[in-house]
Simulated assay, not measured.
Amino acid sequence: MKVLAAMSGGVDSAVAAARAAEAGHDVVGVHMALSKSRAQTRSGSRGCCTVEDASDARRAAERIGIPYYVWDLSDDFHHLVVEDFLSEYAQGRTPNPCVRCNERIKFASLLERARILGFDAVCTGHYARIGTDGPDGAPSLHRSRNLPKDQSYVLAVMGPDATGRALFPLGEFEDKQAVREEARARSLGVSTKPDSYDICFVADGDTRGFLSRHLGSDPGQIVDADGTVLGEHDGTHGFTVGQRKGLGLSRPAPDGRPRYVLDVDPASRQVVVGAAELLSRRELVARDVVGFEPIAPGREVTAQIRAHGEATPGIVEAVPTDGEGVLRVRLVAPVRGVAPGQTLVLYDGDRVLASATLERHA
């Protein structure tokens, strides 16, 4: 099989490419240059698509013995991921840029280019597993054996078609140390490289500052659940549901307990804050459903709303029909910090059933 291996310059993608080549596939490595600044350098575990990363990927490809290329996808990345991130925050939503990157770059832009060039599949270093237990043997997506590193949540938006053209050689690894040891044994040169984390295009980790620089100032009020004005802010884009720190309030709640962001409304320029218990939701409502198999009302599922959050058992109450309507899930126990724009992923055991985007209110 002819395989295009996406090589970020990290240990995971290097080992994945090596395993694909060892399995007998005809592998070509490609580094996706996603940053507009080619002179950008890494800061520990922060940053992406740096000159160091491209060089690390090239050296790993040479060691594996596969061809290696750099593809400039920075325009696609900026338009489809960064601008989407800014637009979502401007609308008072909380997007997950990793979900968008996997959907629109790694398994849309990259996969389409691979198809045009005659590749059968794209190989990445994601921690997830692919099966064939979907409807009529269709491709299915499962959690990784390494549950702390599982990335099925951010991959669920791929859907079954893209999943059927993907390879995830690291899905069977039970811990990250085993991956590093294999990289060391293969002399790939990246065995001790730190993992990247946070939002890759916010290299300094200051998401609020990044949003302020790009979206500017749009002052408004911070109010409590009764509408009492408690303070002012420079822009609703600096807040997300569930946030506790950085509210900038001069006085505590009357009962002395912490306040949390309950809602963000760009139209009124208001940020609503209140007690922690007001954050709890037992019903989830979502649109833009990407399904791996048909789901009917009454189906028992587990629901996850954060990349590394726990999945909560629930029952599907409603599903879209012919693209109309919403996906509605009733949870057996409330979850906190449900924010519009977050990704909802439904599971049956370790198998992904569907991905969707949460709406503002249940």
Rank of each mutant, 00 (worst) to 15 (best):
A296Y: 08
T228G: 09
H308I: 00
G238C: 12
V301H: 02
S212D: 12
K176R: 10
D288W: 07
R282H: 12
S280I: 09
D218S: 14
P252A: 10
E293M: 11
E310P: 04
L284Y: 00
L188D: 06
D255A: 12
C200L: 15
V241Q: 01
A311P: 01
G248H: 07
G248L: 06
S280T: 14
L284E: 01
G298W: 05
L211F: 05
S268C: 01
L279K: 05
R208H: 06
Q270M: 03
A311N: 08
D255I: 14
D218E: 14
P219D: 06
D195A: 13
G209R: 05
P194Q: 03
T207A: 05
S196T: 15
V271H: 04
T228D: 10
D175N: 15
S250M: 11
L279G: 03
D175C: 13
A276F: 13
G291C: 05
H237I: 00
V273H: 01
H214W: 03
T312Q: 13
V261T: 05
S250A: 13
A303I: 06
V223P: 00
T302F: 03
T228S: 08
A253S: 14
T312L: 08
D218F: 09
A178M: 14
R281C: 12
I295L: 09
L278W: 07
R186Y: 10
R257E: 10
R306Q: 12
V264E: 00
Q270V: 07
A303V: 06
R186W: 13
V285Q: 10
P219T: 09
I222R: 04
V289G: 01
Q304R: 12
P254E: 04
F292C: 00
F292R: 00
V273K: 04
S268K: 07
D195L: 10
D206K: 10
K245N: 14
D265Q: 12
G242Q: 05
F292Y: 15
E232C: 08
E310M: 13
L247H: 03
V261F: 02
T192E: 15
R180C: 11
G209L: 11
R299V: 07
V179C: 00
G309S: 01
G256K: 09
T236F: 02
L230Y: 03
P266A: 11
G235Q: 03
D288R: 15
I295V: 12
R269A: 14
A185Q: 07
G274P: 07
P294L: 08
